[in-house]
Nucleic acid binder design. Structure first.
Lengths: 137, 137
DNA sequence: CTGGATCCCAATAGATACTG
DNA sequence: CAGTATCTATTGGGATCCAG
């Protein structure tokens, strides 16, 4: 299931990489582990991008099958699982970092600000309230 | 058409990168320009991975819209187009290189050999014939 | 409760045939 | 040569169900 039939099998290392982690979700999960210290199914579900449960389960399964992620029982929680990156998974850090570097140069610089302005327009009072309570967390 | 509805809009640079070039074909086209000096629609179609014509057209259009690729008329050929990377496109080279580096460490080293062995098993005579005529191109 | 599996169906990607 | 049209396959969202 899932991503069979998508493999290029051309022998090209770029194609191999894409076949392994080149879908729209996999790298985000890896990012969560690498950059945000997320380790559980619930953690991943909580990310901003709102991955669906079936997609997440599928991707985790594949990452495990590929040896990029390891799944163990939480020794404390006993009914929870902990996902961690293997060396092979951790070795993707430079790829992620180069993507971040590239985006840093080319992401629309005012996207966040635009969001903010939209918020202000729609609900100025709510925004002001948010502003006042910000930084107290 | 194409990749609308897939954008994460989370503000995360990784998600931004994925939204821009994170599908299964875009990076391969960029690889062709970057590493193999390909410049025309026909060039891209000829790659090992066999991209479909509509996909290629779509991806080129998007790459152009994103300012990653530039499309100009071939000054010689006049009814042919030349696609070249912009600076923004060229700036993806480190991403590609890190993917190659990662794959270099983790790609199944014997994939090509396995293919070969399979061929030999299925059609030994055909294989021998291929072997004899190889290197004459 | 956490970590999934499953089903439905909408939307997207992709292969193939054909066209300006 | 450089695409478009059409039709099929796959992915993905969301709800719900299920097991430990």
């Amino acid at each position: 299931m899932s991503n069979s039939g998508k493999h290029h099998q051309s022998g090209c290392p770029v194609a191999f990489g894409i076949d392994t982690f080149g879908d729209r979700w996999t790298l985000l999960v890896i990012r969560d582990m690498l950059l945000h210290g997320k380790t559980t199914y619930g953690d991943f579900l909580g990310s901003d991008e709102q991955i669906a449960t079936n997609i997440l389960a599928d991707r985790l399964k594949h990452l495990e099958a590929e040896g990029i992620v390891e799944k163990d029982r939480d020794s404390d929680n006993r009914r929870s699982y902990i996902y961690t990156l293997t060396d092979k998974g951790f070795a993707l850090a430079p790829v992620i970092f180069e993507i971040i570097r590239w985006s840093g140069n080319y992401i629309p610089f005012n996207k966040a600000r635009k969001e903010l302005l939209r918020k202000i327009e729609i609900d100025p009072e709510g925004f002001m309230k948010e502003l006042k309570t910000a930084g107290k967390t």
